[in-house]
């Protein structure tokens, strides 16, 4: 009994040590480098700064090029909120209908969902389509692209989760006089809460961290997103590591906060519905 408890404690300590090394050490490196002066930071050493320049670096990054980093935060926030909202709404509807109602359309929808996961994006033709729709270089155009790339994964999650909701619940609501729209919004959507949180967090981080999408489909400085601003501080022959790491620190905070607050729900949502397909 005693040895078992000891061994458990040892495993626990080991797990904590490993997670500290894997997660906290890199984070500490980011914070320390972001606090150094440029010559100090160029050594890329894991050491305390000779002079603390955290505030100076923060001010310089934020005020760089008339506040391009702040503008990028606004753009990224709008992009993330709109894309994730659209994904949740569409995927919840598709997931519910395809799980509940079997028809000849199902194989077609399944194929499309799979294709969405498999087919890689082609940049130039996509730009042509956006140009013809007059959506190129607009946030709306990029929202549609992000939704397209993320939707398949969301649909799979929603469909698996809907399978765990008893059909009797639908029938009871219909007997009480609920129409299809009311059934979905007032019965099903509240029950989808765990999986909605999972989708929101996973997709928000994916969209927020996307680099190639904004690079190719939303060029222009007024449209910059946060990941693109990282390139302001590095080049082949001259790197400003202190500013680069300050920018990284700023960009890391929103996803980090999201994970800290929703950690439990994310794991729960991922495993919910994993048993019943």
């Amino acid at each position: 009994m005693r040895t078992l408890r000891l061994r458990r404690a040892a495993y626990g300590v080991l797990a904590i040590v490993v997670s500290v090394v894997v997660f906290l050490v890199p984070f500490a490196f980011i914070v320390l480098t972001a606090s150094k002066t440029a010559p100090d930071a160029s050594q890329l050493e894991f050491s305390l700064p000779q002079d603390w320049a955290f505030l100076d670096n923060l001010v310089e990054v934020v005020s760089y090029r008339d506040g391009i980093v702040l503008r990028a935060f606004v753009n990224s926030a709008v992009l993330t909120v709109l894309s994730v909202t659209a994904m949740v709404l569409l995927a919840a509807m598709v997931g519910y209908v395809t799980q509940r109602r079997r028809s000849w359309l199902n194989p077609v929808v399944d194929t499309m969902v799979l294709a969405g996961l498999i087919v890689p994006p082609a940049v130039v033709p996509t730009v042509w389509v956006l140009q013809r729709l007059e959506l190129f270089k607009t946030l709306g155009g990029l929202v549609l692209i992000e939704v397209t790339f993320g939707l398949s994964f969301c649909i799979l999650l929603f469909r698996a989760f809907v399978a765990t909701i008893p059909r009797e619940l639908d029938e009871a609501a219909i007997l009480d006089g609920a129409g299809p729209v009311r059934l979905f919004w007032t019965m099903i959507v509240p029950l989808l809460r765990p999986v909605i949180i999972t989708v929101v967090v996973v997709q928000a981080v994916a969209v927020f961290n996307d680099f190639t999408g904004p690079l190719y489909f939303l060029p222009g400085d007024e449209n910059a997103t946060v990941q693109l601003t990282l390139y302001n501080f590095q080049g082949q022959s001259l790197n400003q590591y202190n500013l680069l790491f300050m920018d990284i620190l700023l960009i890391t905070i929103p996803p980090l906060v999201l994970y800290v607050f929703f950690n439990r729900q994310i794991v729960a949502g991922m495993t919910n519905g994993a048993l019943k397909g």
Partner: peptide, 21 residues
């Protein structure tokens, strides 16, 4: 409240797409 939020979100989404054009 929940319905209000969902409808509001959908409206924002559509609005932004139109504005983008």
């Amino acid at each position: 409240l929940r319905r209000g939020l969902a409808v509001g979100a959908a409206a924002t989404l559509v609005g932004s797409l139109v504005a983008g054009c």
